[in-house]
Design a protein around this nucleic acid. Structure first.
Length: 358
DNA sequence: GTATGCTTTCGGC
DNA sequence: TTACGGCCGAAAGCATAC
């Protein structure tokens, strides 16, 4: 089954201050460039009635809510992380196997404790929803199905506070009428490409021969689409390992092509990443930068070191060099700058020593 | 051709 | 009409080695 906490950030804010829960609540990332620049991260269902959705500019949200007593709040990740941890402890206790997906989502394999019975699985889900509600006051939506791909879609069709069960015999009729965009992995771009091929629903997709799909979308995606559309997925529910990368991105106060201004911001991002690496005693092997230009186009450049490093100046200098190269390839001014490190490796020596002697 | 590694883009939240 | 964040993982695309 897939458990998805409803409108998570906004629901957390409603718990912190229950007086707002009868109003539209909009939680946003403010870029700091102007008073209202930034985008909506999550909105509660009252705000959604006004067309306020994740990803729209704050200014758009404000104009859609201009005649209403709405609450606009900045994101508070520390608080949501804390709530998430508490939820995950409860969810994990209901699972044979557990896989945390994001801050607000998790897959649970309950096959064994439900004795392969969908009625029993449904009872488990109800109990779990009850406990999350009683202990933390949060609602969630749950999809129960024979596999992860279908469970995810099932959780999506009935929100908030939903519980949808799709048994093996019902998979075809459940999936066929849904738009291809319901499938995980089919975003806007892929959906447009499929539409152009005359594929609108999952049922349409299920009929396309595998060769065509592989030729169009590549080996992995093509065969995944084919199987997923037919309700086939044998990927296990399993614990996720350590994080593979750490990144920071931020918006410049104003668009610029001045390397000084760009590297000033880049240095800040590097320092922030570096302090995270120190905390976890990690080195990095690969450094990538991203520059988002005035037209919101994304440009990246990366470099892999010959061996892992734990030196902050390597991080800073490499990032700036990459950004300088990237800038040479671009014509428009830069709006946002980001740095990402990957190839994370445990540093051999304890941190104290590292900073003292290397 | 296969395996492998690096860079860039895409999708989800 | 426009408006516009900050993360993460995974795969495609490409190059290279054998």
């Amino acid at each position: 089954m897939l458990v998805d906490l409803d409108y998570f950030y906004a629901q957390c804010e409603e718990k912190r201050d229950p007086s707002i829960k009868e109003k539209p609540v909009v939680v946003s990332v403010y870029s700091g460039r102007t008073e209202d620049s930034g985008v909506v991260s999550t909105a509660n269902y009252i705000a959604r009635e006004y067309g306020v959705r994740s990803g729209i500019p704050i200014s758009v949200a404000k104009s859609r809510l201009r005649e209403v007593d709405a609450v606009f709040l900045p994101v508070d990740h520390a608080f949501y992380d804390e709530m998430s941890e508490k939820v995950m402890v409860i969810l994990r206790s209901y699972a044979d196997r557990f896989e945390e997906v994001g801050i607000d989502e998790a897959y649970l394999d309950v096959t064994e404790r439900a004795g392969r019975d969908y009625g029993a699985a449904t009872e488990i889900a109800r109990d779990m929803k009850g406990e999350v509600k009683a202990h933390l006051g949060l609602t969630c939506s749950i999809g129960i199905a024979p596999n992860k791909v279908v469970a995810k879609i099932a959780a999506d069709v009935n929100k908030p506070d939903g519980l949808t069960v799709v048994k093996p015999d019902a998979m075809r009729e459940f999936l066929n009428p849904l738009p291809v965009g319901s499938l995980i992995g089919v975003g806007k771009k892929t959906e447009d490409r499929m539409k152009a091929m005359g594929i609108g629903t999952i049922g349409d997709l299920a009929q396309i021969d595998e060769k065509t799909l592989i030729d169009t979308f590549g080996q992995k995606l093509g065969s995944y689409f084919r199987r997923a559309a037919n309700g086939i997925d044998d990927t296990p529910v399993q614990e996720r390992g350590e994080r593979l990368s750490v990144s920071r991105i931020s918006t410049l106060k104003e668009d610029t092509r001045d390397l000084k201004a760009i590297s000033r911001l880049s240095d800040r991002l590097c320092d922030d990443i570096y302090s995270m690496l120190i905390e976890r005693n990690l080195g990095f092997t690969s450094i990538a930068v991203v520059a988002i230009t005035r037209d919101l186009a994304v440009h990246t450049k990366s470099k892999t070191l010959e061996r892992p490093s734990d030196r902050p100046e390597i991080l800073r200098n490499t990032a700036t060099a990459l950004l300088s190269e990237l800038l040479d390839e671009l014509e428009l001014p830069v709006r946002r700058v980001g740095v990402r490190v990957s190839g994370l490796a445990k540093a051999e020596t304890p941190n104290k020593r590292l900073t003292d002697f290397t």
